[in-house]
């Protein structure tokens, strides 16, 4: 038979191995997205400010920052994890485990978030920016009261996509010692020929993707159809 479900230890492992792995995957995802969002937002603001059509054009700065962002983006996540392990060790004291994986995942996530956000902010109707300048708004007022406010739905959908993308990356991190669902699927499923175990984890990941997408869509609809948030 193609699949062999006869000798599975799935039900035995469910509470003691899989459940903790779900928690640690979610932790890795949450913190790498959180830090990636903070750094990515800062970078996006700098990119939008200094772009040739920006509020304070600075072509040299824009090009340099863009170059750095592109360079980091060109690293496959799995290579990035290995490549920056000395930095990781310096930051969190170890280069293996969930906490250690958050460092390279953050590093991989922030350029993606920054570029998505840059694109969202640049989609805002340029006349709206002109209008804001025409009544004397300062650059930071234009940035936060106009651009971020207008681009919010688009930013939300970009973040949803990025989060799902990095759920896959956290499982990759499992391959190089980070733990989480990826590691479990690999070591307890694939390497022990326990197919049910492996596919059960794929199903769990699938459910997580659906949940992230669903939550993202709910937030998107909320910010898109409603005016100010919390009104």
């Amino acid at each position: 038979m193609f699949f062999d479900f006869s000798n599975t230890r799935l039900f035995e492992y469910l509470p003691e191995i899989i459940l903790p792995a779900v928690v640690s995957t979610l932790q890795m995802l949450f913190f790498s997205m959180l830090f990636g969002f903070v750094i990515g937002t800062l970078v996006a603001i700098l990119l939008v400010m200094t772009s040739p059509y920006g509020l304070k054009p600075n072509p040299r700065f824009y090009k340099t920052l863009g170059f750095v962002v592109n360079m980091i983006r060109s690293f496959p996540v799995i290579i990035l994890i290995v490549a920056i392990s000395p930095v990781t060790r310096a930051l969190v004291g170890t280069s293996v485990g969930e906490e250690a994986a958050i460092v390279p995942l953050t590093l991989a996530a922030f350029p993606v978030i920054a570029r998505y956000m840059e694109a969202s902010l640049q989609e805002v109707n340029p006349d709206v920016i002109l209008a804001a300048r025409s009544f004397g708004a300062s650059n930071s007022q234009i940035m936060f009261k106009v651009l971020f406010s207008e681009a919010l739905p688009s930013i939300v959908s970009g973040l949803t996509t990025t989060t799902i993308l990095f759920l896959a990356s956290t499982t990759l991190a499992g391959a190089v010692g980070a733990g989480g669902l990826g590691a479990v699927a690999l070591t307890y499923g694939y390497q022990r020929f326990d197919d049910l175990m492996m596919y059960a984890i794929v199903v769990i990941l699938f459910v997580m993707v659906l949940a992230i997408q669903g939550i993202g869509e709910i937030i998107y609809r909320k910010v898109k159809n409603k005016g100010a948030v919390g009104k």
Binding site: N125, D127, V128, L130, A131, S134, F135, V146, S149, E150, L152, P153, V223, K224, K226, G227, A228, K231
Partner: peptide, 14 residues
């Protein structure tokens, strides 16, 4: 004051 062809209103504000 200034007004535009595209109205230049913020879509997400009342």
């Amino acid at each position: 004051g200034m007004i535009f062809q595209s109205f230049a209103l913020l879509n997400r504000k009342t």
